[in-house]
Design a protein around this nucleic acid. Structure first.
Lengths: 124, 124
DNA sequence: CTTGAATCTTCCATCAATGTCAGGTTCTAG
DNA sequence: CTAGAACCTGACATTGATGGAAGATTCAAG
């Protein structure tokens, strides 16, 4: 399929798809005239890329993972790279949970104005 | 305390602390000569700011939350703002979990090369 | 063929947090 | 008082994903 259709089907802008190619995340075959053509599985691949992007991975990191994935992830090095990245994501989740808890503290205190503490300068 | 000490105690760069002030996240009182001075609770406040930053909140958003927090978060609007932000964080956590699961799929497949599928072009 | 839609490439712009450098001022220990 | 450390402001650079415009070319449908 062509880039416009892929964009429509994935919800990713044409601009971004070209960027993904530039970053070696998403190869495309070219027509004689130079237009990009994608195989059906590209839809799935873009979805994966998007997931990794929204998990905060950089295009560089995603590119490295993709190399491993495309190669079949057979080597122990590749596997440990993937595992490392997964662990990084889990650490990030912990971080988020922390932030959420902090916000919850603030929210709960807001129901009980007498409970002081906190970071605010305050008159005391 | 002065900015250098606050930086040392929080692990945040002096540059960033100045930026936080500029963004109205972290007020400072000024000495007659113009040097910033921070009260003890600033340490805690910086920690909170850092948590929110690493949760992906923008300085703009953090600033808005801080206003509510400093005001005592009494109004329903303030509370719903905080709750909305907490929910956004939880959605982000879901996103991360999704990405982690995707990676885990890839990792598991890597132990069992015959299990095909996936996004890679492949000779088939 | 012709024509209009889709694509191509190449730039330049943006946003946000932070780094860094320069040149000047303040603070503090001796 | 004085030297040197710490601080001040202001400016510019950076990184990364994306947006957007311009001008040329290709594709597909009639």
């Amino acid at each position: 399929m062509r880039i416009g259709e892929l964009a429509a089907r994935t919800g990713v802008s044409v601009r971004s798809l070209r960027y993904y190619e530039e970053q070696h995340l998403l190869p495309a075959v070219r027509s004689s005239g130079g237009h990009r053509h994608y195989p059906e599985p590209a839809v799935h691949r873009v979805a994966l890329i998007q997931h990794l992007f929204s998990a905060g991975l950089s295009s560089r990191t995603i590119g490295e993972l993709m190399v491993h994935i495309d190669a079949g992830v057979s080597t122990p090095e590749a596997r440990s790279r993937l595992i490392a990245e997964r662990d990084r994501i889990e650490r990030q989740m912990t971080e988020l949970a922390e932030a959420r808890d902090r916000l919850n503290e603030v929210i709960e205190v807001s129901y009980d104005p007498d409970a002081g503490c906190s970071f605010r300068p305050g008159p005391a």
